[in-house]
Design a protein around this nucleic acid. Structure first.
Lengths: 205, 205
DNA sequence: GGCATGACATACATATATGAATGTAAACGT
DNA sequence: ACGTTTACATTCATATATGTATGTCATGCC
């Protein structure tokens, strides 16, 4: 049809990204054409190519709506007491992460990135997953190291092993939940598992 | 060229499956054409369509070379003493699993299934992953239940939570390792993590 | 109020994969 | 020894996605 106002154009851009999320999640990234995305949004491919350079560019824009660095989760809590309670900091950061991932947009995009997207164009989802894993493991290692210094960690455990264990648990839990999020509540099961594991890792006094 | 003997034909079939493994792993399933697979094996698409109905059929055949039911791992060990040492049974089963996954063929195919393959045709890798996860979790739950009955499990832990924790650890570890298997040895890190975790879960006496 | 530009829709040209059809020479049964 | 079938290679027809080029009309600015 005809030209839209600036606000309307921004809205169609968002609509295209919403549509991409929906179709990518349903059919996988590789099998969805830009036309399918456009039609889902009530547009044509012309709109897609106007707002985005190509599929990879659209994909990146979709990801950028849900950036979630791990440290940010802890800063968000902002409790100054947490500096000397590293295990509690971990617990609360995980809680925040669960809550955020349960928001539909975060859940959808992460499910796409992890389960519905192969490498294509210059997009490498495995490299992104590696980055996220490295970052998470590094942060956990930091907390467990100070926990060990403060004597909060079981003395027969190294911070490295504790961090790897917890990171593996988180990763496994995420993958399982993102595969079929209806089967259980991430917040409930995640909270339970993290609490138990932290209890097991804690020094008894 | 010309017709091959039965043995040669079987060999080309295997060569095609080998080629599929290599190219799928390198480029992802969606981006690889049957021609690329054929060329990698030194054949043409004619050979592929002779041995397999289509891409999905080829893919299934590739999977069938690495079937690995979880219970089988325990039976393979075949130690009758393990009936009354369920935690030890878990440990050894995990060990066997690690060793098997480190075989190149198992590693490649599982990496493809988990990280390099979206849903396509009638192939649903997520459903397969779900099956495997369910099976593993069920088996673990059985062992932990008998461990609890025998008093080998910490009394403040339910078998369900113990099983879920261990399954999450295994899942997270597999995903991490399959993403980049050069970075660490599955057998080494896996053995370490499982041993530590089982130690944490064990009842102290 | 005229005009350039923005925000798309439409049309086209190209590339690539698939599946089927056909060709072929050697192996195998008889 | 001969015809049939096997194990492919080659060719062709079709479908589908992509990127670009062009058309169109209203909006926003001067």
């Amino acid at each position: 049809m005809a030209r839209r106002t600036k606000a309307e154009a921004a809205a169609t851009r968002e609509a295209l990204l919403d549509a991409a999320e929906a179709v990518f999640l349903e059919r996988g990234v590789a099998r969805t054409s830009l036309e399918q995305i456009a039609r889902e949004a009530g547009m044509t491919r012309g709109a897609v190519y106007w707002h985005f350079k190509n599929k990879a560019d659209l994909f990146r824009a979709m990801l950028q709506r849900v950036r979630m660095p791990f440290e940010e989760l802890v800063e968000e809590i902002g409790d100054p007491e947490l500096a000397n309670k590293p295990l509690e900091a971990i617990r609360q950061a995980c809680q925040s992460g669960f809550a955020r991932l349960e928001q539909p947009r975060y859940r959808r995009v992460h499910a796409i990135l992890i389960h519905h997207c192969e490498t294509f164009a210059e997009i490498d989802p495995l490299a992104m997953q590696n980055e996220m894993a490295e970052e998470a493991c590094g942060a956990l290692l930091g907390y467990f190291t100070s926990a060990a210094r403060m004597g909060h960690l079981r003395p027969d455990l190294s911070p490295e092993v504790a961090a790897r264990l917890l990171q593996a648990i988180l990763g496994g839990l995420f993958h399982d939940w993102l595969r079929n999020y209806e089967q259980f509540s991430l917040r409930e099961r995640g909270t339970q598992l993290i609490e138990v594991q932290l209890h097991l890792l804690r020094a008894e006094r």
